[in-house]
Design a protein around this nucleic acid. Structure first.
Lengths: 261, 261
DNA sequence: GGAATAGTGTCTTTGAGACATTATATC
DNA sequence: GATATAATGTCTCAAAGACACTATTCC
């Protein structure tokens, strides 16, 4: 601490939150974006987010509040810390340090534009990250970090089952992995792999007839949170991805879990 | 953003940095701690850190500055973002949001106590995390997160070679892994494993006589940053560790790389 | 029957972990 | 010689990836 000068007072910064909310629609990964209704970047697309309301507000609480205010989404489960973005100059309004959070959830409702958002909607991640689209501030970077984090999460956690219904077929589960990872997987190896992860999925007894094929066995989510052995992406899958990164594993964020007591 | 009320103004918070600086001394992992010379927590041990100096200071720059001011350390390489700790109430002085950074480096010099630090010194991590020691604020948590991150880094990066001299023997390299991971490894399997990681280490030609045994071949650091196959800790090693965690892999931090443009 | 999807089996390769064995130094 | 450390080899097991094959539905 620097307190040798008694008259010195630590500067204060504006603290913001930014939210990367991912969901699956159809078989593509989508991200929640708003169209900014105020300056700066009025009219541009942006991640939902905003400033802390008051000195006492918890950061995660602020994230939930903004999500509700800007997109009408309540009860988005499990926001996890993604990173801190605090470069001077990243926001023309002054020194703004933003804490980014990530949530990945299935079947989120249609967003409803709120106060300063002219519009709020789900956009395919592939589209949002394409170079045609302008994202406000450094949100392109934050989004890329969030997507990469989602991919890693699917490897080690049982999250993917949450994107399926109460019961689901193995090929439905495979589609989740394919959508998030942005690759094609071998159905036969996937079948074996997913079954060998202890506690990941359990049989649900019934069958389901699909379009013109043999009926598939139904499964439901198993008891475990972390799956072992993990569903590791091949080195090739990591290299591909669908963002513009060379190595998806070295995203500019902080590690799993997320520091925020 | 919440700007419907024209008279509303976003609150500002104090922004701090906290630093987890790890090094190897002898064959044990050490962390840089200071003894606080000012309230709050005067007299307690703490991670080095402090407030942003002014509105324009870059966060990483502030981290380097504090490191120099409080411990006399300059040129600590590669600070990487570890997490954000911003719970209201974590600091009695008001709302303080702290960005934690991690650095792991070999052969750092002895620290020199600076302005508000009564003392600065290297402490064995095992000791610092023992329940006998009181760390200021939530620094015990931050330290635990940093140590776990260091362990993961050794698995996937070629960092460990930096802790050895220009040239080194394989058993010296093994000692680095054992110190950071806090486990014993089989020298024969380690030998094979480290050699199979392509580009990790390359032969340096010469030999070195050691205490009363066959001379060892010398190696030097290879060209790669990320090693493949990774030096994975066994599930057992993860469970042990030397901190008090059940599962070292689920630290409360953000993922690798570190968000901070 | 054909087309489509579901599920099983088999082969190869790679790497982890346990542990025996050989090599080269000092005393 | 004994002893200590370095280096290599062997065996077993688990898992990934490629891919042939069988099973059950709809048309």
């Amino acid at each position: 601490m620097r307190m040798d000068d008694d008259r010195w007072e630590a500067p204060r910064v504006l603290l913001a939150v930014d939210l990367v909310i991912l969901t699956l629609r159809g078989s593509r990964l989508h991200v929640l974006l708003i169209e900014r209704g105020v300056e700066p970047f009025r009219g541009a697309l942006a991640l939902p987010g905003g400033f802390l309301r008051d000195q006492e507000e918890d950061i995660v609480a602020a994230a939930h509040r903004e999500l509700f205010e800007e997109a009408g989404l309540a009860d988005v489960p499990h926001l996890e810390p993604l990173g801190v973005y605090g470069e001077p100059g990243r926001d023309p309004r002054g020194r703004v340090v933003s804490v980014a959070y990530l949530a990945i959830a299935p079947r989120l409702p249609e967003p409803v534009a709120g106060t300063d958002a002219a519009e709020a909607s789900w956009r395919p991640v592939e589209h949002a990250m394409s170079s045609n689209v302008e994202l406000a501030f450094d949100h392109r970077r934050i989004l890329a970090d969030g997507v990469e984090r989602a991919r890693v999460k699917l490897e080690h956690s049982a999250l993917a089952t949450a994107f399926c219904g109460e019961t689901f077929t193995i090929s439905e589960l495979q589609q989740v992995y394919e959508a998030v990872w942005g690759v094609r997987l071998d159905p036969r190896n996937f079948y074996r792999k997913v079954q060998s992860a202890r506690g990941f999925i359990v049989a649900a007894g019934s069958m389901r007839r699909t379009e013109g094929g043999r009926p598939a066995r139904m499964f439901k989510a198993g008891p475990v949170q972390a799956i072992y052995p993990p569903m590791v992406r091949s080195a090739q899958a990591v290299a591909e991805g669908s963002d513009g990164r060379k190595d998806g594993r070295t995203a500019q964020t902080m590690p799993e879990g997320g520091a925020n007591p």
